[in-house]
């Protein structure tokens, strides 16, 4: 099975020209195998933060950033196998923002997978996002690699469901950095159980790529570079030979 083994050093090759090309992160990611003929690429875009001002009026710079990222992605040569839109399509989770962002993403010439971000979630707890993009967390296989998107921006139920008088305030509280009213991210028991079952079907030698809004680490709580149950998630991933978290 060495053919399928990822070369960790080469695993993530970001095209520097692309990374610098836009206010958004647009990266061409190459998965490099010992047998080069098996290499493939996917494109990664994230953090559009489409923001409605009023009505059909949105923040122009953020629109232009996503429009540009989509147009650049469509020009990638060689073509990527698929696109992952990282997270935070919207700024304040509004239906209008997500709809408008989805309209722009539709112009991508490739199959596109979306990951949930906190800005997409905390207004209506992912309802609008789900209507556009489906389940909050899911997995798929591609050319011998198992891809997983996790909804890792959840937090304690009390904070989410009871503390705030309005959904708008909940959304705003979660967007602040160093906010004493904030709450740490977590994957949560239900998603961990799903992950455990999902991984049970996967061979330990199969490379895994996991997309997560929050790093599966505990780095800095104040800015939510933090996952409260990072250790539990890491434990689920540990038996696998090659795991990369994006």
């Amino acid at each position: 099975m060495s053919d399928y083994r990822l070369n960790r050093r080469d695993f993530l090759k970001c095209a520097g020209a692309l990374a610098a090309a836009s206010c958004l992160t647009v990266s061409m990611v190459e998965l490099a195998f010992a047998d080069r003929r098996k290499n493939f690429t996917f494109a990664y875009i994230s953090d559009a933060h489409i923001q409605q001002i009023t009505g059909a009026n949105f923040v122009r710079n953020w629109n232009r950033g996503l429009i540009r990222a989509v147009a650049e992605t469509n020009l990638l040569t060689p073509k990527p196998d698929f696109v992952v839109f990282g997270d935070d399509l919207a700024q304040l989770g509004k239906k209008e923002e997500l709809d408008y962002g989805a309209e722009m993403l539709k112009k991508l010439d490739y199959k596109t997978y979306c990951v949930m971000g906190k800005h997409d979630y905390y207004l209506d707890l992912g309802d609008s996002w789900s209507k556009l993009f489906g389940p909050h967390y899911y997995s798929w296989d591609h050319k011998g690699v198992h891809f997983i998107t996790l909804n890792s921006i959840l937090t304690y139920d009390e904070w989410t469901h009871e503390r705030w008088p309005t959904a708008e305030q909940r959304m705003l509280e979660m967007t602040g950095l160093d906010n004493p009213n904030g709450s740490p991210f977590m994957v949560g028991e239900k998603r961990r159980e799903w992950l455990r079952k999902d991984l049970a079907k996967v061979d330990k030698e199969t490379p895994i790529v996991l997309f997560s809004h929050s790093p599966i680490q505990k780095i800095y709580k104040g800015w939510n570079f933090w996952t409260e149950d990072a250790e539990e998630v890491q434990a689920l991933l540990k038996p696998f030979e090659d795991v990369t978290v994006v």
Partner: peptide
């Protein structure tokens, strides 16, 4: 229509 690749600083 505005060009998709317009430089970021160019705005109304």
């Amino acid at each position: 229509p505005v060009n998709d690749f317009l430089s970021g600083g160019i705005r109304p």
